[in-house]
Write a protein that binds this DNA or RNA. Structure first.
Lengths: 247, 247
DNA sequence: AGAATACCTTGATACAAATCAAGCGAAGGT
DNA sequence: ACCTTCGCTTGATTTGTATCAAGGTATTCT
């Protein structure tokens, strides 16, 4: 939760880069109003702490940790998850650069889930208290933050629907399309990407076992919809994939 | 969305009653800070519109409707749901008196789900714009509203976990326990209540078919955990029900 | 009151995904 | 370089829930 030393800020520049590299992404909803209304970007540096570097497997926060900040992903990928009473893991989300996580801690002042880096990642810490102070002065910041939370709600509800109404094939196809479109938003290839998460994580997110996920990938490959080489995914036919996802 | 005529305010008094009858419930999180900080309850009347009466089957809002307010349930029960691409219904929540719904509309300015009364109900309309204005002046109101949204997120994530990791029996048991504890919060019997929703709704909420829900109720009754007479539920053994829900 | 309709229950069967099992390849540690 | 571990794939079998089917009960409407 501490400010990182100055010499690290050269490699992880935050938050300036966001506005340049992610002008159209989720995070811009927080950064942009600040920049626009104050006409002073240094203001941003004041509220958003410099990037926290995380190694693969590091926890950003754990279930029951005190809540003090939300986090914007700068690079890499973070998964959030809960552990059920019988010890199994439920992945509740994958967060890519430009996306914000940690809002689950607001209601009880402790986090209701854990967040773990799936690969070497950097996040920006946005101290909640200062965000609150600032929001009272900048109504647009407040409304953008509410939008962020509301989006989290609708996305969770989409996942509920996906899990309870769709087949294994539809679920996997939908996730691939989701990652694809999030890549597109980041100006990356929507057809060619590396999955940062394991098959187990995918299964735990979609309510499936590893074996089923693996079989679905094989089936989709046999159909020619996509090619999969371990973690490398190449989508050959977006149209057909959308049909299979029935979205 | 309009203020109701004055003569109706005698039967549906709002929001005074909330603070008396639901001092410990969710809604208090919105009402109380207002009352405490202003020392003037009429202030509340200014922001919270008088109750909207709804008949069974009436819609409070529909998917894609313009978003202008959130709603606090005053009496009755409201379900929220989405329609999937193939026409099936996914119930995303049941809202009892003292609970707030409609936050899904904030991100896109249109509702992402529909809300329908399961029985004769009354709700309070809380115009979002005025809530926002007021929140900039009352930081505690703002933080309470954020808490409300955060709780919605954690509850949705609990449902995700329930659906993807638990058996039919566990899901139904968990729902019964949830309704039971929400009744307790309203000072109603936690052991004896009437279900406002149909078996179909329960199934659509828990990701099960009607038949499975019905079979589970029969099984639980055979075990002596609860007694079910159509919509009347009597929980005989909370302990055992918790075990069955594995919560 | 009686008919029509919606809702609920129970049984038989089918099926998709879980589980059990085994082998393979890549990565990490000594 | 070898061994161990972890992650991924594929096959055989089991199982929980969906589906199909039919009858019963409550509710609504005329």
């Amino acid at each position: 939760m501490t400010h990182l030393a100055a010499e690290q800020s050269t490699t992880i520049q935050c938050p300036h880069d966001f506005q340049i590299s992610c002008g159209n992404c989720r995070l811009s909803k927080i950064c942009l109003p600040l920049a626009l209304e104050t006409q002073d970007v240094t203001y941003l540096n004041d509220i958003i702490q410099r990037g926290k570097p995380l190694q693969k497997g590091d926890h950003l926060y754990r279930d029951k940790d005190a809540f003090s900040a939300v986090y914007a992903v700068r690079s890499g990928c973070i998964k959030t998850y809960r552990i059920t009473d019988d010890g199994r893991e439920q992945v509740t989300g994958f967060y890519f650069p430009g996306e914000v996580l940690g809002m689950d801690g607001i209601s009880e002042n402790t986090h209701a889930s854990s967040a773990k880096a799936l690969e070497t990642s950097a996040v920006c810490e946005i101290p909640f208290e200062r965000l609150g102070e600032l929001a009272t002065r900048l109504p647009s910041l407040q409304s953008h933050f509410l939008q962020l939370m509301s989006r989290e709600i609708t996305e969770d509800q989409q996942l509920i629907t996906l899990i309870s109404k769709n087949s294994a094939e539809e679920r996997v196809a939908a996730l691939m399309l989701s990652i694809s479109s999030r890549n597109a938003r980041r100006k990356l290839s929507p057809s060619n990407f590396r999955l940062p998460m394991s098959r187990i994580d995918i299964g735990n997110y979609l309510g499936l076992t590893v074996e089923t996920v693996s079989r679905v990938f094989s089936r989709l490959q046999k159909l020619g919809v996509l090619e999969v080489a371990n973690k490398e995914i190449q989508i050959n036919d977006h149209e057909q994939l959308r049909d299979l996802a029935s979205i």
